[in-house]
Amino acid sequence: MTQSPAERSWPLWEVFTQSKEGEPHQHAGSVHATDAEHALQNARDVYARRNEAVNLWVVPSVVITASTPEDVGPFFDPANDKAYRHPQFYKVPKGVKVF
C-alpha cells in the first residue's frame, strides 16, 4: 500500500483567497494538486467551505521567491532612516486642524 511515485510528485500550490470584492488576496495555505485546475478545485474545498472567498489564486510554491529572514535588517534598512516619509515629520502652525 505504498504510494506511487507519480502521486508523490503532485506539486504543492500556495492558495490565496480574496474574501470580498475590492479586498486584497491573502495567503490561506497550500494544497497538493496535479495541475492548476485541480489545485483550484482543491483550494475551494479546503479553504472556502464557508464563503471565505469570492476569488482564488493558486500559485506553484516553487515559483515564489521570498526575502530571507536573515536579511531582515539590511534588506529593509533603506526605509528606517526616512522619517520624512511620514506626516508626523512635518510641523504645522498651532491651531491648524486641517491635517
Binding site: 500500500m1 504510494q3 506511487s4 507519480a6 502521486e7 510528485s9 503532485w10 496535479t34 495541475d35 485541480h38
Partner: peptide
C-alpha cells in the same frame, strides 16, 4: 487509501497525457 488509489492514479495519468 487503497480504494482511492485509482482516483489518484487517474488524476496523475490525466495530467501526464495533457
Amino acid at each position: 487509501d487503497a480504494d482511492g488509489a485509482w482516483v489518484r492514479a487517474a488524476a496523475s495519468a490525466y495530467v501526464e497525457k495533457h
